[in-house]
């Protein structure tokens, strides 16, 4: 048994402690916004935040995140209103296939919470996810725009 707090809600789960968080989210809780890409922490499609830190859920065991606050893409929008990062992603028309984008959006959200005005280097360091469609140029522009939106009073 494990007890996890996901998107502000407590869940008692009958899962092995070594099960990666990704599969709890996807297969036990049907939170399918978090994607499976590599299973080895290499691509970032499975990125969620754990106590505000961008975390690759495919290599993060359930037992290691008990007692933390886990947040997934599903609740980033507050009562239907897109977060600043999501808004910027729409404005810059970032996604193509879109499969990797929840991971990018979560990683960007964590980055901007900690570094409201990141430099190019800081963006490069924080966003090591893979996008096979090659949306990188729009991602960079959208990160900048999200920082701006956040500063001007939008939510995270």
């Amino acid at each position: 048994m494990a007890r996890l707090t996901i998107n502000g809600k407590g869940h008692d789960l009958d899962v092995e402690g070594e099960m990666p968080l990704l599969w709890v989210l996807r297969d036990e809780l049907n939170l399918t916004g978090t994607k499976f890409g590599c299973g080895a922490g290499l691509c970032g499609a499975c990125t969620v935040t754990v106590d505000g830190e961008a975390t690759r859920s495919c290599i993060t065991t359930v037992e290691s995140v008990e007692g933390t606050n886990i947040r997934t893409i599903e609740t980033l929008a507050d009562a239907g209103t897109l977060s600043a990062v999501q808004q910027a992603w729409v404005e810059h028309q970032v996604p193509q296939c879109g499969y990797c984008q929840p991971g990018f959006i979560m990683a960007t959200s964590a980055l901007l919470d900690q570094t409201p005005d990141p430099s190019d280097d800081e963006i490069d360091e924080a966003l090591t996810n893979i996008c096979r469609c090659g949306t990188y140029e729009r991602i960079r522009a959208a990160v900048r725009r999200a920082a701006q939106l956040k500063k001007s009073g939008g939510q995270s």
Binding site: T32, G33, T34, T72, I73, E74, L76, A77, L82, Q86, W89, V90, Q93, V94, P95, G98, Q101, P102, I105
Partner: peptide, 12 residues
């Protein structure tokens, strides 16, 4: 604008 983007940024 792409019609699929709103649901793609929501993870939906």
């Amino acid at each position: 604008p792409r019609l699929d983007i709103p649901e793609k940024v929501r993870g939906a």
